[in-house]
Simulated scan of single mutants.
Amino acid sequence: MSRLKDNGFEYYTLDELKAKTYYKQDLEAITSVFDELPQDEYAPHLNRYRRYARAVIMPGSHRLEWLPKTIIDDNSYYEYFQGSFNPEYTDEYRRFPALPEEMMHNALLEDIIRFDFQQTFWMKEDALMPVHAGIHFVKLCVNEAGETAVSSPNNLHQDGEPFTFAHLIRRRNVKGAMNAISTPANRGQMPDNLAPGELTASFYLENPLESYGVYDPLVTHYVGTVEKGDFNIPGERSAILIDFQPTVVSDSEQTSSMKGLTDQMIFV
């Protein structure tokens, strides 16, 4: 049974990846990238840091190919677009610094992407083509008491891609960062404003590779603000977010795999 397919939300521990011989070394390499993430230039006042990359995955073989970067003034970027789904950046392209080249040869990262892809399901016509994967490294980090770090958008929301998965990499000296899942009817709401029972789930990611996934048409999701904890070190919540969508999309809301007809959808 797939809870993701039935309910639009599922929690994962990725224990099978933690048993890999390369796990410790590759996780350390991934974690080190978060140490040097550049500030999100679209929200410099929100204590958010990020890098991004794009890839395609072939149905059947699950072979992963990284897409070319945009080079501007000798710096590498990838473009990101959410259409109308992010009210803070409606119909606006954003350009994020690319992941370091060594991440595109990191076996653990590739296996995380493949694990996520194996949880997804598609209408047959969408499953015929390669599937686009967006890989976000996002850090919420505060250095001083009283500061907050804020995700985007800062409410219960949908992303506009059929699937999004979140994988914790590091959480330290943090207050907050609660994850919440609700229904599409509560899109744009804050979890604290909902009546009892309107949240499908609320939880905290605490350990490396503690994860969850959502099927966008069936749920909304949220991660709360980060505040510094009680110790004299920065408060940090670092995570990898991976989204999937068909490679040929004219209007995401018209994509057949976004219509929520899970009883007609197949795993690839």
Rank of each mutant, 00 (worst) to 15 (best):
R95M: 15
S202G: 11
G188H: 00
G213M: 03
L205S: 04
L99T: 05
A19G: 14
S76Y: 11
Y11I: 10
W66K: 07
N86Y: 03
F244A: 01
Y22Q: 13
E92I: 03
T90Q: 13
P97G: 05
E16S: 15
M104T: 10
I181Q: 03
P87L: 07
T120L: 06
E16N: 11
P87D: 00
K69Y: 03
E161T: 09
C141E: 13
R94F: 02
T225D: 14
S257M: 04
A19P: 10
K69E: 15
F163P: 01
A133F: 06
I71W: 05
H132Y: 09
L4F: 02
Q119D: 07
Y52K: 10
D73W: 04
P153G: 06
S76A: 14
N232R: 11
F81T: 02
D216V: 01
V150K: 12
F137G: 07
D111R: 00
H45Y: 15
E101V: 10
W122E: 05
I30M: 05
A180S: 06
E227F: 04
I233H: 06
K228V: 01
V150L: 14
D230C: 10
A98K: 00
Q39F: 07
D15H: 08
T148Y: 11
G229H: 01
L261A: 14
T70E: 15
P208Y: 03
Q119R: 12
M1G: 15
V268F: 12
Q254S: 13
E144L: 12
R114K: 07
K228Q: 02
H62G: 10
P44S: 12
P184M: 11
P162E: 12
R170E: 15
E125Q: 14
A127M: 04
H136T: 09
E101Y: 08
H136E: 11
N186M: 12
E28R: 14
Y23M: 09
E16I: 07
Q39C: 13
E110Q: 14
A180D: 11
A53N: 02
T255F: 14
T120G: 00
L27P: 03
M103T: 00
G213A: 01
A201P: 07
E210H: 03
W66G: 10
N179R: 01
D243A: 11
A43I: 08
N173R: 03
I233Y: 09
E10K: 08
E28I: 10
F117C: 01
V219S: 06
T70L: 14
P100D: 13
L108S: 07
T183V: 13
Y222T: 05
E16R: 12
H105N: 14
M129G: 13
R63E: 15
A180K: 02
I57P: 00
L168R: 10
F34D: 00
E227V: 05
M58Y: 14
T21Y: 10
V223M: 08
I72P: 11
Y204M: 13
D230W: 09
P217Y: 08
T262L: 02
Q264P: 09
A149E: 02
L199I: 01
E125A: 10
K5P: 01
E28Q: 12
S2F: 05
I30Y: 02
G134P: 01
T220W: 01
Q254W: 06
M129Y: 14
